[in-house]
């Protein structure tokens, strides 16, 4: 019993001594908040809620806009990582101010711009979006005529997989993206079956493997996309797009239109007409510009801020043109 008490006292003593030692030892360092300049730089810009949709090209747009808004205009930028649907939904609830790379989405435009009137268009980003069917480069080399859709049936047997039930496989990706592929296969009388990979990583991985192992693959893809700078996929030419040839989704038999990737902002944000809105409205660059920043992020593993900083510092004149004139 006596021993127990002695031990207890000793243990308690040890722990308290340790605590005291810690307290003493710790008191040497710098104090929290000592070198913090708490004063916000500017007040007139306020907070911008930027939706960030989950692909790298978008991230590049958002990073550059956020960087400029913060450094040049003194805004506070809150980035919100959201899928497209939820971003648009955010216009209504007031939680999202801007979407800075929109691929078409006519249905959402109708719902939020025309019907709910919670969003307004804010012009083009200057980036051209191309959707189509692609094959890995080795195939284009080995079968040069594969890029013409008329020859696709000839090669159908090459594309057979465990998933395609005896036909050729056409691999589709993330269901967020607009696709007419089922109708195209049917209307162009192709001996193919659309297989849904279900996500962008699955699609990219499939192309990577196809090139590395020289296995046949044809899939839905799009440009700009950071992966194209790793592997230059080759587009298959479908019957050319003409105005209105895709009006009836059931009867489509032509290629996808070129998308003018644009920006959408919330009505409230546009009406306030602050400097951040002006910046977003003026923002425009090229596919090449976006690919550079996307490469910084995806391949060079830079943080979006660093990537944006690097690009902005090299392209001062382009940035100057976006800033509000006042």
């Amino acid at each position: 019993m006596r021993r127990t008490i002695t031990r207890t006292v000793r243990l308690t003593g040890v722990s308290i001594t340790t605590a005291a030692a810690l307290a003493l030892a710790g008191c040497g360092g710098a104090k929290v908040g000592a070198d913090d300049d708490a004063a916000a730089r500017s007040v007139d810009c306020g907070t911008v809620n930027l939706a960030v949709n989950p692909w790298v090209g978008y991230e590049a747009n958002a990073a550059v806009i956020a960087y400029v808004a913060e450094t040049e205009l003194g805004c506070k930028v809150t980035k919100k990582d959201l899928k497209e649907e939820i971003s648009w939904q955010g216009f209504g609830t007031g939680e999202v101010d801007a979407i800075v790379e929109n691929w078409g989405h006519e249905d959402l435009k109708k719902k939020y711009i025309d019907e709910q009137k919670t969003a307004v268009a804010a012009g083009s980003t200057g980036v051209q979006g191309v959707i189509g069917w692609y094959v890995p480069p080795w195939m284009a080399q080995k079968y040069p005529d594969i890029t013409d859709w008329k020859n696709l049936n000839k090669y159908a047997s090459l594309f057979k997989t465990s998933e395609s039930g005896g036909k050729g496989q056409l691999l589709d990706g993330d269901p967020s993206f607009v696709t007419n592929d089922e109708a195209l296969v049917k209307n162009l009388k192709l001996n193919y079956k659309v297989v849904y990979a279900g996500s962008e990583p699955a699609l990219i991985q499939a192309f990577r493997q196809a090139e590395a192992k020289k296995t046949p693959l044809m899939g839905y893809f799009y440009d700009p996309q950071w992966f194209l700078s790793e592997l230059q996929l080759v587009k298959v030419n479908l019957p050319p797009y003409t105005q209105g040839c895709d009006a009836d989704a059931e009867k489509v038999a032509c290629d996808y239109p070129k998308y003018d990737l644009d920006k959408v902002v919330s009505k409230k944000f546009a009406d306030a007409n602050g400097p951040a809105y002006q910046l977003i409205k003026n923002f425009t660059w090229t596919n090449a510009d976006q690919n550079v920043v996307a490469k910084y992020i995806a391949e060079d593993k830079m943080s979006p801020q660093d990537a944006a900083k690097k690009w902005v510092e090299a392209n001062r004149d382009k940035v100057k043109a976006w800033l509000p004139k006042s």
């Binding site: 243990l11 308690t12 722990s15 340790t18 605590a19 810690l22 710790g26 929290v32």
Partner: peptide
């Protein structure tokens, strides 16, 4: 007793982490 002793040590750590950057 140990609960008390370690409790004090924990509080000291909390205080340090509140106050000092390191």
């Amino acid at each position: 007793l140990l609960l008390g002793g370690f409790g004090v040590a924990t509080l000291v750590c909390c205080y340090l982490s509140y106050t000092y950057v390191w």
